[in-house]
């Protein structure tokens, strides 16, 4: 699992490192999460939150299927931890 997410973390670190005071948007669109992936998502959220706390404008979109209550609830919970980054919980059409 770590091997799977490492390139994502590395890419995001590089991107956010160069972002400075700029703005960015990060979309999550998931249909299933196991425990390890949930932890990885929280780590991604931490990185985005840290960038926002550092002055960047960060918008995080959590997109979920309209019939997927689990993803909706998870999005709500993840959003609770964010203070500097702007969190958007959006239901996908169709």
């Amino acid at each position: 699992m770590t091997e799977f997410y490492r390139p994502v973390f590395t890419a995001l670190d590089e991107y956010l490192g160069a972002l400075g005071q700029g703005s960015c948007r990060f979309d999550f669109e998931l249909i299933y999460l196991n425990s390890s992936s949930a932890k990885a998502v929280m780590m991604l959220m931490d990185k985005l939150e840290a960038a926002a706390a550092g002055g960047a404008t960060v918008d995080i979109y959590w997109l979920y299927d309209k019939e997927d209550d689990t993803m909706q609830e998870l999005g709500e919970e993840f959003g609770e931890d964010l203070e500097a980054a702007k969190f958007h919980l959006e239901k996908m059409a169709g």
Partner: peptide
């Protein structure tokens, strides 16, 4: 506090997945 929230969240997720 954050660690406790994460633990709770993971536990809920695990329970939900098992239920599904």
């Amino acid at each position: 506090q954050k660690l406790l929230r994460a633990t709770r969240r993971l536990m809920r997720l695990s329970d939900r997945n098992e239920e599904q």
